[in-house]
């Protein structure tokens, strides 16, 4: 369907993307605004970025968020990948319906309910709220996203590869480790990145499950945003947007280079 790249189609794409990107672009521009008044342009300045690095609270929150993100994404990736294997490879076990339900439910569960229920659990078992409770909470909902990402790759996976490995003498665990995992690795990485960004991004669940001393960056931003737009927050947001963009572009380039390398090797091999 590449016919009909008409004026109308180009216009809808351009307008759509303008809508998606303009607010972020404006935010980035105004983070370099010298004026204290956020909506009045007062010339170019990086003073807000300078101020950020002396804002102890913000830096602490960023550090907490990073630690929670790295840890929860890693645990969620392990658990989510195992769950995906269980869902696709073991069609029969006791409680499979409940298991499937529990993997999918958090995907559609409103965050307020997930947060509320986890908080009530931590209170009920008298678990001190802080870094660990936020991490546990993040693992729980992001592992389900990882499971879905890895599952879709496992479904399109040629099952005879696993059978071949076992036929050649590899136990199920070795088959998983040396054949299945390497083949679905890109999906596992994508799952990890998704889990990591979900954790970095989360405000609601963290607000419920966090405790004193474990304020995450979104919580910090939120409490300041409620008081109004400040150039400093613009600067924080710009840094975050920049990091994400950098990450996505790097990932894309690495992928592309690998593909190019592969096809070149292929051409050489065929020659």
């Amino acid at each position: 369907m590449n016919k009909g790249w008409t004026g109308f189609n180009i216009a809808s794409v351009v307008i759509g993307f303008a809508f998606l990107y303009l607010p972020i672009v404006i935010l980035v521009i105004y983070s370099f605004n010298a004026s204290q008044l956020v909506t009045v342009w007062g010339g170019f300045s990086t003073r807000w970025y300078g101020q950020l690095f002396s804002n102890r609270g913000l830096l602490d929150a960023a550090w907490v968020t990073l630690r929670v993100g790295l840890l929860s994404a890693t645990v969620a990736t392990i658990l989510g990948t195992l769950a995906a294997v269980a869902l696709t490879r073991y069609t029969r076990f006791r409680g499979r319906v409940l298991f499937t339900g529990m993997v999918y439910a958090p995907l559609v569960m409103p965050e307020v309910i997930t947060g509320l229920s986890l908080l009530l659990l931590f209170v009920a078992i008298d678990f001190d709220r802080g870094f660990w409770t936020v991490t546990l909470a993040h693992v729980t909902f992001s592992m389900c996203f990882v499971a879905v990402v890895v599952q879709s790759r496992l479904l399109s996976f040629d099952r005879s590869l696993e059978e071949a490995a076992m036929d050649l003498g590899a136990t199920p665990a070795r088959t998983f480790l040396f054949v299945t995992l390497p083949v679905v690795w890109p999906a596992v990485i994508a799952g990890w990145m998704l889990a990591f960004t979900l954790s970095l991004d989360d405000l609601v669940i963290a607000s419920f499950t966090s405790g004193p001393g474990a304020t995450t960056l979104p919580m910090k931003i939120y409490s300041q945003v409620r008081l109004g737009v400040t150039p400093e927050i613009n600067a924080v947001c710009t840094i975050l947007v920049g990091l994400v963009t950098l990450g996505v572009i790097t990932a894309t380039l690495v992928n592309k280079r690998r593909e190019v390398k592969k096809s070149r090797e292929g051409e050489l091999a065929m020659a």
Binding site: S160, E163, A164, M166, D167, T175, P182, V183
Partner: peptide
């Protein structure tokens, strides 16, 4: 006896060569 302990080997229709 699980497949990985049987003294038989199989050549698969799709060949099932490990791509990596």
């Amino acid at each position: 006896i699980p497949p990985y302990r049987r003294p038989v080997n199989m050549m698969f229709q799709s060949y099932a060569l490990f791509p990596h």
